[in-house]
Simulated assay, not measured.
Amino acid sequence: MEGPKYLKIADDLAEEIRTGALGPGELVPSETALMERYGVSSGTVRRAMAELRTRGTIETRHGAGSFVRSALLEGSVPLSPDLLNQLREKHGLTREGFKRAMQSAELSITEADSGEYALTYRIPLS
């Protein structure tokens, strides 16, 4: 059985955003356009848009429409000196060498099946 129509619309729009068909800052199709595309009522479209706002995918500006939010979240979280020392020692880097290497490091956080998280990194050494 198919789920609620508003979730289908929200998921379709989220996929368009994920694939780049709708990019950051772009105007999301109007309520009228979505009603026509999916053959649904304005209430269904409004629920879909509310779902996307809840997910943080779009933002609505009164009188202007709904726009794709930037896909970039920025911020920083302090890392413990112990963790940094473990990384440095694991790879035999001096403090200065580690500092230089970290300038071009690629970091990501992954979730294991157990629900725990791990810092994944790629640090070019050249």
Rank of each mutant, 00 (worst) to 15 (best):
A33G: 06
A33P: 00
A33I: 06
M35I: 14
M35F: 10
M35V: 13
R37L: 12
R37H: 08
G39S: 11
G39C: 13
V40T: 14
S41D: 06
S41A: 11
S41M: 07
S42T: 14
S42N: 08
S42Q: 13
G43M: 06
G43K: 00
G43H: 06
G43R: 04
T44G: 02
T44P: 04
V45F: 05
V45Q: 00
R46E: 10
R47C: 00
R47D: 03
R47K: 14
A50K: 11
A50V: 00
E51K: 12
L52C: 03
R53Q: 13
T54C: 01
T54G: 13
R55H: 12
R55D: 02
G56A: 09
G56P: 01
T57Q: 08
T57S: 11
T57N: 01
T57E: 05
I58T: 07
I58R: 00
I58G: 02
E59V: 11
E59D: 13
T60H: 12
T60Y: 12
R61K: 10
G63W: 05
A64D: 10
A64V: 09
G65Y: 02
S66H: 06
S66G: 05
S66D: 04
R69D: 02
R69N: 09
R69C: 06
S70F: 00
S70M: 01
A71P: 00
A71C: 03
E74W: 09
E74I: 12
G75E: 03
S76T: 08
V77E: 07
V77Y: 06
P78D: 01
P78I: 05
P78A: 03
P78F: 03
L79I: 08
L79Y: 08
L79H: 02
D82T: 13
D82Q: 14
D82I: 07
D82H: 09
L83G: 02
L84C: 05
N85A: 15
Q86K: 13
Q86P: 00
L87Q: 04
L87M: 14
L87A: 04
L87E: 04
R88Y: 08
E89T: 12
K90E: 14
H91V: 08
H91M: 11
H91L: 12
G92P: 09
G92N: 13
G92S: 14
L93I: 09
T94L: 07
T94E: 09
T94W: 08
T94G: 14
R95H: 12
E96C: 00
E96W: 10
G97K: 15
G97S: 15
G97P: 12
F98Y: 12
F98E: 00
F98T: 07
K99Q: 11
R100H: 12
R100N: 13
M102C: 10
Q103G: 10
Q103V: 11
S104E: 15
S104T: 15
S104G: 11
A105L: 12
A105S: 15
A105E: 10
E106P: 04
E106R: 08
L107S: 04
L107P: 01
S108G: 14
S108I: 00
S108D: 13
S108R: 09
I109S: 06
I109Y: 03
T110W: 03
T110L: 05
E111H: 02
E111D: 08
E111I: 13
